[in-house]
């Protein structure tokens, strides 16, 4: 009966795991730059990476304002999706009747492509609200479905243990509700955490996509100033370097968002969940 090692080494990645993708990335950029220079490709067809970087710096004022707009929409959409998704998942998991009557609508909302709904939303709502609604709409489903899955995946024996120790039988409705709440708070919530965090990671990326899609649907007709709007605008003006610069910012936003949410997941689960322990050998 020796204990498993209490102090395990932190999960370190081997340097190769970091160096290899960086090397491939650098090589791709280098090849791109070389191709553009050697073939003398005009910048309105394909700008060199160096030009894109220069544009990014030169247009920073315009682009950063756009970045901020898109970021605001994305994060607000994500926060609202989490609030709404978690609340609804809790309601749905507490009552079968609510689940049966509401869950199909969540599915319908999810499977209808957001790009098809966006024009409609733009008619009914002011543009910034419509964009936010799109971001919310696509981020909402992964949160609700994963949270529900988590809330329902509680060890059956643990539930029985709660029944045995928690609920004095034959007592009133109030004590039954209290014991149900206890089971929810002590058992279902922590059990749902891993699945919820998975949903959150997916929702983060989708929320950005939703915001971009809606901005695109609004297009030049809108008064928007998000990154997607900049992309459309640059396309019309054949300002391809700026288009690329906006694209780089969008990609970077997505990556940072994903890394942040992954870090949150790791911090929350590292003590106990298998997914956070993979690197341990």
């Amino acid at each position: 009966m020796t204990p498993a090692s209490g102090t395990r080494p932190p999960a370190r990645r081997s340097p190769l795991q970091i160096l290899l993708p960086l090397a491939v990335f650098a090589a791709a950029i280098g090849a791109w730059e070389a191709y553009v220079r050697i073939e003398a490709v005009p910048p309105y067809i394909l700008p060199a990476p160096s030009l894109v970087a220069a544009t990014l710096l030169a247009d920073w004022q315009v682009l950063s304002a756009s970045l901020l707009t898109t970021l605001k929409t994305t994060l607000l959409g994500l926060v609202l999706a989490v609030l709404g998704g978690v609340t609804l998942a809790i309601c749905l998991s507490l009552s079968r009747i609510v689940e049966y009557s509401l869950y199909p609508f969540a599915v319908v909302l999810q499977v209808t492509p957001v790009i098809a709904i966006a024009p409609l939303l733009l008619i009914y709502m002011p543009q910034d609200l419509a964009v936010l609604a799109c971001a919310w709409l696509v981020a909402f489903f992964p949160v609700i479905s994963n949270t529900m899955l988590g809330l329902q995946s509680v060890d059956r024996n643990l539930m029985e243990l709660f029944e045995l120790y928690g609920a004095p039988s034959g007592q009133g409705l109030k004590s039954r509700i209290v014991s149900r709440l206890k089971a929810f708070w002590y058992l279902r919530c922590p059990a749902a955490l891993p699945a919820f965090l998975t949903g959150l990671r997916i929702a983060g990326g989708l929320s950005l996509i939703g915001a971009v899609v809606a901005e695109m649907a609004a297009g030049s007709a809108g008064a928007g100033s998000g990154l997607a709007y900049r992309i459309i605008e640059s396309q019309y003006r054949l300002n391809i370097p700026r288009l690329f610069a906006a694209l780089v910012l969008l990609a970077a936003t997505g990556v940072v968002l994903f890394l942040l949410l992954s870090a949150v997941t790791h911090l929350v689960l590292r003590r106990w969940h298998e997914s956070a322990l993979r690197a341990e050998s």
């Binding site: 029985e160 243990l161 058992l187 922590p190 955490l193």
Partner: peptide, 27 residues
């Protein structure tokens, strides 16, 4: 009554002391 299942049925997110506390906590 104390009940012991075939599986340990511990809460993975709680340490041993908190797991042992559970029946009392519920009361």
């Amino acid at each position: 009554i104390g009940f012991v299942f075939q599986e340990p049925t511990l809460m993975p997110w709680a340490n041993v002391a908190d797991n042992v506390w559970l029946p009392l906590r519920l009361r």
